[in-house]
Design a protein around this nucleic acid. Structure first.
Lengths: 202, 202
DNA sequence: ACATAACCGTAATCTTTTGTACGGATTGAC
DNA sequence: GTCAATCCGTACAAAAGATTACGGTTATGT
């Protein structure tokens, strides 16, 4: 057993798991219901993933991989670093406030007392992946004389704080909505304006 | 039945609920275990609170009341508005990253698919309470000519973003620790420095 | 086509929780 | 002290979920 069929089954299982996670949350996303929706057997889920946490850990990793590719693409052009930050902002906002990220953060919050692995996975693949990319952008901005940067890592964290702030927790506890493109662009523009004032040439 | 005994029983139940919430999370905090720890009867819990969510909603409200008092005390002195922000920063950081707030945010994240009430309660009593207080401080800073403020509400949100950023979600998913006093002071100082640059007299 | 591995659908086991019921004990009011 | 209301501790019923087992069906490799 291998080949195309197994890959298709795997994809169907992961898709079903994501749907049910988003609809009902981690607690109510039972392995049995995921199996039913995916037209798979409970036993196959346990055989392939070992347990519930491992299935959702795989989802975290998949989602992070996709997000990372989007972010790297937004940064791929070797143009003006400030332009790069402006391009990246809306992409990053849409990812972190999107349904998938929110559902997975909720799962991680619920998992803290069980295996305590989902949160670490989210952070490893999320923030700890994007920060070095951003740090590199700020190094370039400093080298090009566009901004006065003592510590590029700190500048990168400041950008994330100005851009995202407390949006994620508000999404996770259910008091705010996904950030749509227009708003993401406005929020990015404001963050970049603030950055220029904080780190402008003295 | 009323009077002192009932008040003491109520306090014991709420204390037990908080302990178990912090130790095991919302999902595993069963009414039965809370009753046992509080030396109360399951039936009494259901009689007094109706259901699990309502018990935890009461905890949210209690915690928010206490937090608000601390914050108002930090802002009570009618001195320099920038000093007020510097006094408030560490207090706010310790509250939002403290065990109680984190446990309640996790409960709210888990409740999104059930009654979806805890998150709204947290926000009503938390952010939507502190923002007007901060907005007033920024109005004063503008009027006193200390900062150039177009929109005091926006400035207040910027301060929260610079100060707290994504700390809350990172606490909730288990990848960071409470913010201790020294770090809270450093973080506050940095946020205030950034504020001066963003909103300094032109 | 055939043989084998693996998956599907169903069932079973075990554990835990929610919410209600009840008799005896305790508290509060008079 | 007496009486009534209420709480405690225990028990029960129903439901749900995690995980494993099993016979028949299906996909894969030769």
């Amino acid at each position: 057993m291998g080949g195309d069929y197994a890959a298709r089954r795997l994809a169907a299982i992961k898709e079903a798991a994501f749907e049910i996670l988003a609809e009902k949350g981690y607690k109510a996303a039972s392995m049995l219901e995921i199996a039913r929706r995916a037209k798979a057997s409970n036993e196959t889920l346990y055989k392939w993933f070992g347990n519930k946490q491992a299935l959702f850990k795989a989802l975290v990793e998949d989602n992070a991989r996709e997000a990372r590719e989007l972010l790297e693409r937004a940064l791929s052009d070797d143009g003006d670093p400030i332009d790069a930050l402006s391009r990246l902002g809306p992409v990053l906002l849409e990812i972190v406030t999107g349904e998938k990220a929110v559902a997975l953060n909720r799962a991680a919050a619920g998992d803290v007392f069980e295996t305590a692995t989902l949160g670490g996975t989210i952070a490893d693949y999320g923030r700890e992946t994007i920060l070095p990319l951003l740090t590199a952008v700020f190094e370039r901005a400093g080298k090009d004389g566009l901004l006065t940067i003592d510590d590029p890592r700190e500048a990168a964290e400041t950008y994330i704080n100005l851009l995202i702030g407390d949006l994620q927790i508000r999404r996770v506890i259910g008091v705010s909505s996904p950030t749509v493109r227009k708003e993401a662009e406005a929020r990015t523009a404001r963050a970049v304006t603030h950055l220029r004032r904080i780190y402008g040439k003295a």
